[in-house]
């Protein structure tokens, strides 16, 4: 697009491009400021939210073992729970700002280390599922919307809706029953075999373990991409500019490629980015069903104890990643859509 413009009127091109880029930068900075504010509120909120939960964490940790009041006090002192609430709050804020999320009550290890151990497995599973779900959903949604009412449309929309309505854990258990117990094609749990080989064999082993949880996650995720893409393409197909493009002599598939699909993709941008935010949190259910050693399983374990510092840490991680991805979605949208840019 820029090449003919510059030959036509170079001065005007530069004059227009300059302020537009500045505007985007200013917009991105203001969005980043808003995101920082939200993150601050998340940190403050997290502290009070988990202090509101009923129960004494120290007693929960003791888990019914007989402990003298002195021992309990000692434990409280060790965890800093004997300080006044306001001092605890200040300590918490100070630590968090230094990226110190405290030590887990249960595992007796820094929360950040625990998260670091798990985050790889989650990113692998959820990232792969997201990529597959987005490509599958957008592709099917595009075909279904373009040939609205066709057999492909009815079949793919129907299938995706069924998979979307099914509870995740049920789909996971069904997959386990059929493909792991009956056919024994895939392992039932974990990310690798105990005697996993090295090198390329290891990659294959992990991939083998990942098939079923990945299918379960994709099955649940892809419907929303399909439906959003389909309906947003249907909106565009009815627009006059599609007719105008046809009347100018553009072939049908070019009308789709150049006009309808790029514009229909805009709403899905937000959806994809929001999902990326949640990916870090992991699909708690899928990870629990398949014993996938990711963040979701960690969070699930922390709730069962309850392990306050661990819950706080994972909670903040999920919240912050959602906020960051939303901010990124806003900025990307701003760059993609000229209408938003001038608003």
């Amino acid at each position: 697009m820029t090449a003919p413009l510059e030959t036509a009127e170079p001065a005007a091109a530069q004059a227009a491009a300059g302020p537009a880029r500045l505007g985007t930068l200013r917009y991105a900075l203001s969005k980043a400021g808003g995101a920082l504010l939200s993150i601050g509120m998340v940190i403050v909120g997290t502290f009070f939210l988990f202090r509101l939960l009923p129960g004494d964490p120290v007693r929960n940790l003791a888990q019914g073992r007989n402990m003298t009041p002195e021992q309990l006090d000692l434990e409280r002192h060790r965890l800093g729970l004997d300080l006044p609430l306001f001092d605890q709050f200040l300590n918490f804020i100070g630590q968090t700002l230094r990226f110190d999320l405290g030590a887990s009550y249960e595992y007796k290890r820094p929360v950040l280390d625990l998260i670091g151990d798990r985050v790889g497995a989650t990113l692998l599973l959820a990232g792969t599922s997201l990529v597959i779900a987005v490509s599958l959903g957008l592709w099917q949604g595009m075909r279904a919307g373009w040939r609205h009412g066709s057999r492909f449309d009815r079949f793919s929309t129907g299938t995706s809706l069924v998979l979307w309505s099914v509870p995740t854990f049920w789909l996971g258990l069904l997959l386990l029953l059929v493909f792991s117990s009956w056919f024994q094609w895939f392992p039932s749990r974990g990310i690798q075999d105990v005697d996993a080989p090295d090198g390329f064999g290891y990659v294959l082993d992990v991939a083998h373990h990942m098939v079923l949880p990945c299918i379960a996650m994709v099955g649940v995720l892809y419907a929303q991409y399909l439906l959003v893409m389909r309906s947003s393409l249907l909106d565009e197909v009815g627009q006059d500019y599609i007719t105008t493009a046809r009347a100018k002599g553009l072939r049908d598939d070019e009308v789709r490629k150049r006009h309808a699909v790029p514009n229909a993709l805009l709403p899905t941008v937000t959806l994809v980015f929001m999902r990326i935010g949640f990916v870090v949190g992991g699909a708690v259910t899928v990870e629990a069903v398949f014993s996938w050693p990711g963040l979701g399983e960690l969070f699930y374990a922390a709730i069962r104890v309850p392990d306050f510092t661990l819950m706080q840490g994972t909670f903040m991680l999920i919240a912050v990643s959602v906020i960051l991805m939303n901010t990124l979605a806003d900025v990307v949208y701003h760059i993609l859509d000229p209408r938003v840019r001038s608003a």
Partner: peptide, 20 residues
């Protein structure tokens, strides 16, 4: 034979400049 439609807002792709 060319076409001009009723609603100029809808007849133009919102993401295209006048030149495009």
């Amino acid at each position: 034979v060319q076409l001009v439609l009723q609603d100029p807002t809808g007849s133009l792709n919102p993401r295209q400049t006048v030149y495009e």
